[in-house]
Amino acid sequence: MIDPDGPDSGPRTPVPVSADEPPPFGASWKALYVVVAGTLAALVALFALFTRAFK
């Protein structure tokens, strides 16, 4: 028998969670993911400029 509130001793049964709840800021989770990816792209560009400036 599965105890959903304790460490199990076998396979789990999924329980509903609010996975699609919107983030507290930003239009959607997808928009937040784009912001994170955009930050990465900007950092790579900045690091490339840094490398070039001190070459």
Binding site: P4, P7, T13, V15, A19, W29, Y33, V36, L40
Partner: peptide
């Protein structure tokens, strides 16, 4: 560390809701 932000996006989108649904430890 450049792959880390990509990993954060994938873990947030795929793994987190899955682990919460299964209520795993």
């Amino acid at each position: 560390y450049l792959g880390l932000p990509i990993a954060m996006i994938v873990v947030s989108a795929v793994a987190v809701p899955l682990y919460y649904r299964l209520k795993v430890y």
